Computed example of a mutant assay.
Amino acid sequence: MAYIRIDPQAIGAALEEAAARFTIPFGPEEIGRVVEAGDGIAHVDGMPGVMAEEMVLFPRDVYGLAMNLERDRVGVVVLGDYSQIKQGDPVKRTGRVLEVPVGEALLGRTVTPLGLPIDGGGPINAAAYRQVEMDAPGIVDREPVNEPLQTGVKSVDAMTAIGRGQRELIIGDRQTGKTTLAVDAILNQTPGDVRCVYVAIGQKMSTVAAVVDVLRRRGVLKNCIIVVASAGDSAPLQYIAPFAGCAMAEHFRDAGGAALTVSD
């Protein structure tokens, strides 16, 4: 017949060890209430310590950006579906200024301007985050533009060469090939040498899906980050999209690499 031996000292030691590891996080937390909401703007009271451009969280995982800091309320632009926000909803501070995930984990993924995946590929385990609004390097700290960025279009590379560290405007009427030229420049980049960030602003999702399909079929999607603020997204989300894409590209620049950002 088997016997069970109970060791009170071993049980007591295990309980003491578990109690030493057990902690309950606590501290003051500012939770405001929505006073009124509409047209992508919400007025919130009860958050006297909120920072300018701090991210706040509404119910149903809708983020907002604190912009107008008044004496008794805060004006928040809603970075999502503002139709779900109602008067009296609780609003939580995050303690984080507007930031996006950055790094290798985003390559090959399609995300929102907040870095949330929308391609069905699962969550993104980013190793770092970067603030969207950051000071640009000073003139003295910048390296001279002395290396070309090959677009693959001979007429552009020969007559109006683009250098790494330079900005270029592609201007033209509708259906004249602006997106095609930008996508060709992405296709011409060597994977691992120049990381590419394609930012789609106010476009139809079908148009974005066609671009993603081209990049996937040509085998360069794994070298790209697709940031989408479609025509159906809110105006504030479309507003921050180019800044978010630039922040993702600047991470590779600061790591010693090169990046190409296309805002379309």
Rank of each mutant, 00 (worst) to 15 (best):
E133W: 08
G120M: 07
V78I: 09
I186P: 14
S83K: 10
Y63I: 01
V145Y: 04
G202C: 07
R60V: 12
V62R: 12
V78H: 03
R142E: 10
K86N: 11
L114S: 07
Q238W: 11
M47P: 06
S206A: 06
V50N: 12
A210H: 15
G64E: 04
V102K: 07
P59G: 11
L237W: 02
I4S: 03
R21L: 01
N188F: 14
P137A: 05
T112I: 00
N68L: 15
A14L: 11
R73W: 09
R60I: 04
F26P: 04
S230L: 08
D264Q: 12
N188A: 08
Q9H: 11
N188L: 01
R71N: 14
G256C: 00
E29S: 08
D61I: 02
P28D: 13
A128N: 09
S155A: 13
Q203D: 04
V111E: 07
N68W: 15
A136S: 13
V208K: 07
A127G: 13
Q175N: 06
L65I: 06
S230R: 12
G75D: 11
V102I: 11
D81G: 06
L65E: 10
L106D: 02
A19P: 15
R217K: 09
L237G: 05
E250L: 14
T112N: 05
G256H: 08
K222S: 05
A209Q: 13
E99L: 10
Q84Y: 05
V132R: 02
